[in-house]
Measured scan of single mutants.
Amino acid sequence: PTIVLKVSPEELKALEKAGVEIEKIEKNEDGELYITLTPEALKKAGFE
């Protein structure tokens, strides 16, 4: 199962800087950012 999270541009930068593997980055028509994370990326980021 993949996880989709709504993030701010600042959060996205912080995640990328931390080396979190982001599978997909999407922006909706309201300009909101959503990222898709794999279970492996979540484990690496410390989420179980």
Rank of each mutant, 00 (worst) to 15 (best):
K24C: 10
S8C: 04
E29F: 11
G46D: 10
G46M: 06
K43Y: 07
G19P: 01
E23K: 06
K27I: 13
L15N: 00
K6T: 05
A41R: 01
G46K: 04
A45R: 02
P1A: 15
E40S: 03
T2R: 08
E23L: 14
T36Y: 11
A45W: 08
E11H: 12
S8E: 05
D30P: 04
I22M: 08
E48P: 11
P39H: 14
S8L: 07
V4E: 11
I3D: 01
L15P: 00
E21Y: 05
E10V: 09
E29S: 13
G31K: 03
K27D: 06
K44Y: 11
D30M: 14
E29Y: 10
A14T: 14
G19Y: 04
L5D: 00
P1H: 09
I22E: 00
T2G: 08
S8N: 07
A14G: 06
A41C: 02
I25W: 05
S8P: 02
G19D: 05
I25Y: 05
K27H: 13
T2F: 14
L37A: 10
E48I: 15
E40P: 01
L5C: 07
E40Q: 03
L12R: 01
K44D: 15
A14P: 01
E10K: 09
P39K: 13
E11S: 08
K44M: 15
E23G: 06
Y34R: 06
T2M: 15
E32T: 14
E29N: 14
T36W: 14
E23W: 07
E40C: 04
L15Y: 10
T36F: 10
A14D: 07
F47E: 05
A41T: 04
V20S: 02
K43C: 12
K44V: 15
G31V: 01
L37P: 00
I3C: 12
A14E: 12
K24W: 10
K24Q: 08
K13N: 12
E10N: 10
E26S: 09
G46H: 06
F47W: 14
T2S: 12
S8H: 07
L33Q: 03
E48D: 13
K13R: 12
K43H: 13
L15E: 00
L42M: 09
K24I: 07
I25S: 03
Y34G: 01
K6H: 08
I35V: 11
D30H: 13
T2V: 09
N28Q: 10
K17S: 13
E23P: 03
E48T: 11
E16I: 14
E16D: 07
E26W: 14
I22P: 04
G46V: 04
E10G: 10
P1E: 14
K24A: 13
E40F: 02
E21M: 07
K6Y: 07
V4P: 03
T36C: 04
V20H: 01
V20Q: 01
A41S: 07
I25G: 01
E26Q: 08
K24T: 07
Y34K: 06
L37I: 13
F47T: 04
P9D: 11
L12E: 00
K44W: 05
A18G: 08
T36L: 05
G46S: 03
P9S: 11
V20W: 02
L12S: 01
G19I: 02
T38Q: 07
L15K: 00
L33C: 06
L5T: 03
E10S: 12
K24F: 10
L37D: 00
E11K: 15
K13S: 12
E21K: 04
E10C: 14
I3A: 05
E40Y: 02
Y34P: 00
E32N: 10
T38L: 04
A14R: 15
V7I: 13
K43N: 14
I3V: 14
L12C: 02
V7G: 01
P1Y: 13
E26D: 11
S8A: 07
P39C: 15
I22K: 00
K17C: 06
K44I: 15
F47K: 04
E21F: 06
A18M: 13
E11D: 09
S8W: 04
I3H: 10
L12F: 07
K24L: 12
E29V: 13
K43F: 04
E10P: 05
E48C: 09
E40W: 01
D30N: 14
T2C: 10
E29G: 11
K13F: 13
D30K: 09
L42S: 04
A45I: 06
I35S: 00
K24S: 11
E11N: 06
K6P: 03
I25C: 04
Y34W: 14
G19Q: 05
E10I: 08
A41I: 01
L37H: 00
K17Y: 11
V20K: 00
Y34S: 06
K17L: 13
K27W: 12
I25T: 06
V7L: 05
I25V: 11
K24N: 10
S8Q: 05
A45E: 04
K27A: 12
K43M: 09
E21P: 08
L37V: 15
G31L: 03
K27N: 09
E26T: 11
I35H: 00
A18H: 09
E48N: 09
E11V: 15
E48M: 11
E10M: 11
V4N: 05
K44Q: 15
